[in-house]
Amino acid sequence: MKTELIITTYNSVRALELCLVSVARQSLLPDTICIADDGSGPETKEFIDGLGATYPNLTFRHVWHEDQGFEKCRILNKAIESSEAEFLFFLDGDVMIHPNFLKRHFDLAQRGRFSTGSLIRLDETATEAMTSEIVTSGDAFDRSWLRENRAIDRLGTWLKTMPFPFAIQNLLDVTTPVQKALCGANWSAFREDILKVNGFDETLKYGGLDKEFGIRLINAGVKGRHLRYTAPLVHLDHPRGYRDPEKVKRHKAMIKEVRTSGRSWTEDGIIKGPKPV
């Protein structure tokens, strides 16, 4: 089964580099890595063009469109449509993943199911202190380092650092009452299930786009599996100047409509228009 990791990015070479350092350390590597680029400038292209030399054991492709503001849904659809893989992993380019992250998602790969997790968030100071060496050494996922850098703020965050044997962590995944909402920064699914709902709704900008998509997957019979405690990743802090309260309000209304109507198809996805008969 061919796999592809799709990583979204926008004008953030440092974060993307840290993300890829963690990807290179995976116990299971994807067949290809697609950088889904939401209109970054030449610095990002130059960095991506050099990845083949930096990571000769990894295969990259770069999907890009012109910068028209926050258009994550559109670049994701472009990456999904052009992918030749059966099973897709998704990351935002501002996260670093535990060495067993991709293997955990792959081990649970099943048609008719998506897997998704949650984040360990770094503050601005810890983000500035993060280096490739910290990621390579494994300290980025070390409880002592995370505690010293204020990332462990409650019991739930501590449990995300996998303090117990895998069997117990898996039991926590299964038994913890958490909503199976899709988190766009880290998830996986079969490509055919994504196409079943026509990908992401491109009218959605920042705020709720992943939740709306996840609800449509569930409406289509694709069940969610939450990996809250067995596939950790660390999220770098960054400003969100693209956040628009009016758009967020509109998105909440759309999410409510999708949930109550049971609709799974979007007419503003990979295919523009009604679902083909």
Rank of each mutant, 00 (worst) to 15 (best):
E192P: 01
L159W: 14
K211W: 13
E202D: 09
P30C: 12
G208P: 05
A181D: 14
C73Y: 01
F141D: 01
S22T: 08
I6A: 04
L88A: 00
E267K: 14
L122T: 03
K160D: 08
K78F: 04
G117C: 10
G269R: 06
F60P: 02
S27I: 11
F213Y: 10
N186F: 06
K180V: 10
M1I: 14
I152K: 02
S144K: 14
W265V: 09
M96K: 06
W158R: 08
Y55K: 02
C183D: 14
I152N: 09
E84S: 14
S137I: 06
D142C: 13
P239C: 03
D201L: 03
I255D: 07
P177Y: 09
S12C: 11
G156Q: 15
L233C: 07
N149M: 10
L18P: 07
K256I: 01
L29D: 05
N77A: 07
S144P: 01
R191S: 09
C34M: 07
N198D: 04
H62T: 02
S82R: 13
R147W: 02
Q179W: 08
I80A: 09
V23K: 03
C73F: 00
I218D: 10
N149D: 10
S118C: 12
F114C: 00
S82E: 15
L51I: 03
C19K: 07
Q68T: 11
A36L: 04
F101T: 00
A140P: 06
I270C: 07
R228D: 14
L20D: 00
L159I: 08
H62M: 08
R250G: 15
E84R: 13
A36N: 00
K78H: 09
G117Y: 02
A253M: 11
S144E: 13
Y242E: 15
I215R: 04
A109P: 06
F60Y: 07
R263S: 14
I6Q: 02
N57G: 08
K252F: 04
S12Y: 04
I7F: 04
G221L: 06
E212P: 01
V197F: 07
S137N: 10
T176R: 10
V135F: 05
C34Y: 03
P163E: 09
E148A: 15
G269T: 04
E84C: 14
Q179L: 07
S132G: 15
N186L: 06
L91F: 03
I35V: 13
L227M: 12
G112I: 05
E66V: 15
G69A: 06
A189N: 03
T136S: 12
W265N: 05
T59V: 12
L88H: 02
V135D: 00
A185F: 10
C34R: 01
R250I: 11
E66N: 14
F166P: 01
N100W: 02
I97P: 00
R191N: 05
A53D: 15
N186D: 12
S118Y: 08
D237Q: 12
T175V: 15
A140F: 05
E192T: 12
I33H: 04
